[in-house]
Amino acid sequence: MYNYIEHGKGATAVSTHQEDPEKYAEFMERIEAGEKIEADDWMPDEYRQTLIKLISMHGISEIMGALPEKEWVPKAPSLKRKLGIMAKVQDEMGHGQLLLRVAEDLMAPYGKDREDIMQDLLRGDLKFHNVFHMATKSWADAGLIGWLVDGAAIITQTNMLDASYGPYQRALQRICAEEVFHAQHGEAIIMALAEGTEEQKAMLQDALNRWWPALLMFFGPPTAETTGSSKQEATIKYRIRKSTNEGLRQAYLDKYLPRIFSLGLTVPDETIHYDEEKKKWIYQQPDWNEFKQIISNNGPRSQARLRLRKIAHENSAWVREALATPVVTA
């Protein structure tokens, strides 16, 4: 469901314009004409590496993203809600699987596979989305993730629905269709709380207060200056996405702030307002240093969630080994 374009460090590809100027020109012509690039087509190394980073982070975020919601799956307060959240989390896992397959194909020429992705995650080399490092403290958090986190994901992913890389673009078509259901699932939980008892309303407002900075951070830093060099440029140049981080955040605020306010909720930012002249929302910047800390696995639940994956990986070592053993038939 989730990705933003990272700034700063990370594998910077060798500038590939020189690797084969003729092929490069032909490639750029294709994507500029709106053609889709397929897994076996020639592509510049920078393009391949940008995609690997983007899609493996997207995929692993779907998988890590199942963990905070999972905390509330058994606790969902009715049979209907139990079924709804189970279906949702299962979809997220399915998205993770779909995306990792796309990433695996791109990594194949480097001799890397799924196990490398998992190892990178456990070592801390592969980051997952900031929102999934956060704690979920109440049932309202489960609703809020569906409503506002999936809502944010719909904004970023819709922006890439015409991505130049065919396998990713097709995966996104399917993912976006399902995300719409997730946002509806989240919205239904939120509506029940917003129309509920005083305690339910307070629970909801508390969740929004805690999640607000993480939601702003969702789209990534606004400018390259915030954290260093920019990966936004490569994704836009290669027609993977259209808008900048800030452009997406503005679209998100446009869509969701009126809905938030209409439910009688507030956001923890007294300065927030729409500037009619500049045609944009003016808001208090979240702490981008904290953001860097969070995505470097120093967020409130980063280590605990990585620990879950590590335990799962260790405890199923014997299963992987057994599956690799040919079955003896009597």
């Binding site: 963990l67 999972k70 799956v73 058994p74 189970m86 989390v89 896992m93 879950l308 199923s316 992987r320």
Partner: peptide, 13 residues
């Protein structure tokens, strides 16, 4: 449901 996210591989999850 307690197993969610902990199965031996993603496909199994």
């Amino acid at each position: 449901s307690e197993w969610l996210g902990l199965a031996p591989h993603i496909e199994e999850d």
